[in-house]
Design a protein around this nucleic acid. Structure first.
Lengths: 150, 150
DNA sequence: TATGAAATTCAGCACTC
DNA sequence: GAGTGCTGAATTTCATA
């Protein structure tokens, strides 16, 4: 796909805030009719600008109150560690391979600190290649969004 | 709201993977009809288990290729820094107040390293209270999901 | 604009306590 | 017998061509 125009961008802005807006509602705020908006959304989906639509749930109500951030440095740099995480350990919401001193960065949601202890003990610690492991815990979420500033 | 039963949980699991599934499709996979599934979804929305529905966009196609992680430690601990971030600096996708040595943890999406430089220079550095500022950059996303393991 | 599909509402049935 | 959760049909609203 070529370039996005301002209308496309505005549609994306709206949908990443609220995916339940109807095409007509979006059309109204853009001073258009539903059809062109519909065509554009389909195009944005097909060309991959829109990856998926999801429901965002309330962590606290689901007893996932602990957010831990975990920074891992390896002793030796081989493929093993990455492969382990490619297999998607279920509690890990985000895992990034980083540039620099820290090799991996993990964000994990759990019910309790005990569960985090168990996660480190059973999932991470038996990866023998781990050098340094630093854990941080979230006291308060100040900002959390899935939107991009486009 | 009281407790969630297995059907509620399964509905939440489905919707946090794909919010475009129709109530009938969900109903089929649960061996139910559309009505009770519909009622349950409405209830889960009203009681706040479902916070919102959003479209997830493709970072790369939107020229937000740089993901930076930024750890900030304050010199003195007052309310000022928090308040600054409560105002939601636009590039910051996540900002957490942390326990321990590091005070704040930020995840930022940008087009280029230059923009990151500019972000640090103009947004962070004029907060005089900052002690240590460590930046990390993502080489590769290994896992990234908005789902909770419920 | 026209069509089909989906969401939404509702009356009535089945089960539990 | 009151309460809850289900079915299936009727209606409205939306997506879609």
């Amino acid at each position: 796909m070529e370039k996005l125009d301002d209308i496309d961008l505005e549609i994306l802005r709206i949908l990443q805030q609220d995916a339940k807006k109807t095409t007509r509602e979006i059309a109204e705020s853009l001073h258009l009719t539903a059809s062109p908006v519909y065509e554009r959304i389909k195009r944005l989906e097909k060309t991959g600008y829109i990856e998926k639509y999801v429901a965002l749930l309330d962590k606290k109500r689901l007893n996932q109150s602990i957010t831990a951030i975990c920074m891992v440095s390896l002793r030796y740099h081989n493929k093993g560690f990455i492969d382990t995480f490619e297999r998607q350990i279920k509690e890990v919401q985000e895992c990034y391979h980083m540039a620099g001193k820290v090799d991996f960065f993990l964000k994990i949601h759990l019910e309790s600190l005990e569960q985090y202890h168990e996660f480190v003990r059973s999932k991470l610690s038996n990866i023998e290649n781990i050098g340094v492991l630093e854990s941080y815990f979230v006291l308060k979420e100040i900002t959390k969004t899935t939107t991009y500033h486009i």
